[in-house]
Write a protein that binds this DNA or RNA. Structure first.
Length: 203
DNA sequence: TGCCAGGCCCTCTTTAGGGCCTT
């Protein structure tokens, strides 16, 4: 599988705004199914972390006071990712924050996002639910650290997509697993997936 | 003052509603 940048944000809420910002980002580079590079940083965007978010993530206002400014972190991580295609679990969420935080440093996204949530709904229909932690356990993948911290979640999503790619290769006989292929696969209606994969066999 | 996401996906659907998933 081609090189993919798997990203995960921790934030102060669900939708980016002047008061809802990113607090942490992690990116892992997946190459041939293995994590080969990592970037992780807390980021201080000058907003308060609500109590329930601190409970959820363990990221406190005190931790962010000594963190580098959001602009500095976004410049670094944007440089780190470059034009590598992106993937996240529930990518609609991370894409909103990626675009918002990049916009604040006058940059625009150059690549598409693939989504491990949409892929897992199609390729792991028997899972009890499609939360990242549940899918990790269901697939027998290692738990990578504290859930709801950016690096642990990015690594879990990377392990999950590597697992899904392995299944596509071994169970369905697919060879060329490009990011573009994953982006297309995640839009195929779930009911048509078996027939779709049969048609793709050998490609 | 009070409110505050949104795309996907299923079904008791399509002139709609509600759960899932991310923090």
């Amino acid at each position: 599988m081609e090189r993919i940048a798997v990203i995960d944000f921790e934030t102060t809420g669900i939708s980016p705004s002047s008061s809802c910002r990113a607090t942490e980002i992690a990116v892992v580079i997946l190459e041939q199914g293995r994590i080969v590079e990592r970037y992780q940083s807390l980021m201080n965007a000058g907003v308060r972390v609500p109590g329930f978010i601190e409970q959820l993530t363990g990221i406190s206002n005190a931790m962010l006071r000594s963190a580098p400014p959001a602009e500095q972190v976004m410049n670094e991580v944007n440089e780190f990712v470059g034009t590598t295609p992106l993937l996240a679990h529930n990518a609609a969420f991370d894409q909103k924050f990626w675009d918002f935080e990049l916009g604040r440093i006058k940059r625009t996204r150059l690549q598409n996002f693939a989504c491990s949530l949409l892929l897992a709904r199609r390729l792991m229909p028997a899972a009890p639910n499609h939360k990242l932690g549940t899918l990790t356990s269901f697939a027998g993948l290692p738990h990578t650290g504290q859930a709801h911290r950016a690096m642990a979640d990015a690594e879990m999503a990377a392990n999950l997509v590597a697992h899904l790619a392995g299944e596509l290769r071994h169970k369905h006989g697919l060879r060329e697993l490009s990011h573009d292929f994953l982006c297309k696969l995640q839009k195929v209606p779930a009911a048509k997936i078996p027939e779709h994969l049969k048609r793709q066999r050998g490609f």
